[in-house]
Design a protein around this nucleic acid. Structure first.
Lengths: 132, 132, 132, 132
DNA sequence: GTGGTCTAGACCACT
DNA sequence: GTGGTCTAGACCACT
């Protein structure tokens, strides 16, 4: 539910927050017209400096997913869900392209890639007890 | 054949070089005992500072894929191909996990992910004429 | 207290810094959870380029003695003291092995080596007045 | 008997050869007036480029341990044994000082250092079967 | 201010 | 020519 930050990743933290929020909006966690958590609250949740969250919010605003109402907060725009869905799918497609290109470059057969994909997908969908 | 560098990526250039060489070794481009291009030559090829290539070579040496012989060059170790293959497959798996996790987080159905995967895989395998 | 650099030594400066910090951690100068001096500060102290200190910090991080927190600094890990002590003792043992092997190779009697050792140890332990 | 080269050491190879020959002369392996192996022969023995051996010979000549007779070879000087012994002992003393200083810096007790010294000395003196 | 990456250029040891 | 170390200085992400 909360956005997961991977500090070891090369992706900047503010960008990870952008991705996480975009996916949450695409998935309907935040509906149109709803207010996002304040940058301070979200900063506490993801254990990050408030400035970093603010930077993420600026990016989302530039993308038109949210707009700021001074003194009130950041609100999900009308076209946000549609835009976020497209954005998230584009993103997924790019990552898939990267994975496949790397696998082929390393000499993996397409079938081997497909097997890995199915395995990982199964794991990701499988209901697990102890998810923390 | 040559290593592709994406300067806009968040992945550091030296790490992109590491990934590219690891995949090349896994794919048998460099066989055991063979010499890699000198860091100065590779730097010219990928249009990057020699120090950056050298840093990549240090990482590969730490991973045991190559070893330096002073005054001679960097050479592919005996166990390099095996290690590189495992490393490259691990890497692919991680990227796949990332793509799938993001897709599910954004509310995509497993079937939609599978479709995207197959599409991208087809494109990647399809023989194309004039693409450089 | 400060790390001593010997610019004439064949040991690279960054390695001398690694050794000095490892010994300091082993001796309890930096306790677990404490922050090391920033690489810029330490660079000023030991009169060396900041990049050189940073390289030393990378080695210590790889050894698991410290970990970086972006924007905050380098911090001594929990297992650092234990690891550093073992590492420092190993290092001492290696240097002793080298000294003894060289002495024997040069035809010195074991007893002569022992005498030298005791003399040097006495000098090193003797409280001296004005030496800075 | 043959000079041992450690390619991982930070000490330059030519310097390792100098040290090895100085110790051999100190130990009486080469007597005054005797000829050292040609730099080509020694290069083959220690598996190193002839230029590197030549550089070592130049250092030894500057130290007065050997002198070159053109077309004949390098010959051990009259005062070589005496000088080599003193040089080797100085060298040993310096390495001992280094080891002890490091141990103390890392918080080792003098007694612990003494124990290590005795252990290492025992091992070095113990006659071993399979010494290659 | 703190760590991380990169460039440009110098000098050394070894082949 | 090849790897290894070092300096000087720039820019980015994060606090």
């Amino acid at each position: 539910m909360a956005i997961q930050i991977n500090p070891g990743s090369h992706v900047p933290i503010y960008q990870q927050i952008v991705n996480g929020l975009r996916e949450a909006i695409a998935a309907g966690v935040y509906l149109r017209g709803e207010m996002l958590p304040s940058h301070r609250d979200l900063a506490v949740q993801v254990r990050v400096n408030p400035n970093t969250v603010q930077r993420a919010y600026e990016v989302l605003e530039r993308e038109g997913l949210v707009h700021a109402r001074r003194g009130l907060g950041m609100f999900v725009t009308n076209r946000a869900v549609r835009t976020a869905k497209a954005g998230a799918e584009d993103h997924v497609r790019q990552v898939l392209q990267d994975a496949i290109a790397r696998g082929l470059a390393a000499g993996m057969a397409p079938e081997a890639l497909r097997e890995q994909f199915e395995e990982v997908l199964d794991e990701a969908c499988a209901p697990r007890g102890g998810r923390r």
